[in-house]
Simulated scan of single mutants.
Amino acid sequence: MSALIGPNAVLQLLPLIEPGFLARLGMEPPSDHGLMPEEPAHRLHAAVRDLPQAPAILAEAGRRTGEYILAHRIPRPAQRLLRVLPRGMGVRILSQAIARNAWTFAGSGAFAVEAPGRFRLERNPLIKGETSARPLCHWHVAVFDRLFQSLVSPDLRFHETACAACGDPACRFELSPAGQSR
Rank of each mutant, 00 (worst) to 15 (best):
L35E: 02
L35F: 15
M36E: 07
M36L: 05
M36V: 15
P37F: 12
P37N: 01
P37H: 05
E38H: 04
E39I: 10
P40D: 00
P40Q: 09
R43L: 13
R43F: 09
L44A: 00
L44E: 10
L44K: 12
H45M: 03
H45W: 01
H45C: 04
H45A: 13
A46V: 14
A47M: 07
A47G: 10
V48T: 01
V48D: 06
D50Q: 11
L51S: 02
L51F: 04
P52D: 08
P52T: 07
Q53C: 12
A54F: 06
A54N: 05
P55Q: 12
P55L: 03
A56M: 11
I57P: 09
I57T: 13
L58F: 05
A59T: 10
A59G: 07
A61P: 03
A61Q: 10
G62T: 08
R63N: 13
R63M: 05
R64S: 08
T65K: 10
T65Q: 12
T65W: 15
T65A: 02
E67L: 07
I69M: 04
L70G: 11
A71E: 15
A71W: 15
A71V: 01
A71N: 15
H72R: 14
H72P: 08
I74C: 09
I74E: 09
I74A: 13
R76W: 12
R76Y: 05
R76M: 14
P77F: 11
A78R: 12
R80T: 14
R80A: 14
R80V: 15
L81M: 05
L81Q: 09
L81H: 04
L82F: 04
R83I: 13
L85G: 06
P86D: 03
R87T: 06
R87G: 11
R87M: 12
R87S: 07
G88V: 13
G88Q: 11
M89Q: 11
M89G: 01
M89S: 10
V91D: 13
V91P: 05
V91L: 08
I93L: 15
L94P: 07
L94T: 05
S95N: 15
S95L: 12
A97Q: 14
I98V: 05
I98S: 01
I98T: 03
A99M: 01
A99S: 09
R100F: 02
R100W: 14
A102S: 11
A102N: 08
W103T: 00
W103Y: 14
T104N: 10
F105H: 15
F105Q: 08
F105I: 15
S108M: 04
S108A: 02
G109I: 03
F111V: 01
F111T: 04
A112M: 07
A112R: 10
A112D: 08
V113C: 10
V113W: 00
P116R: 07
G117W: 09
R118W: 00
F119R: 14
F119P: 12
F119M: 09
L121T: 14
R123V: 00
P125I: 06
P125A: 09
P125D: 05
L126H: 01
L126Y: 11
L126F: 02
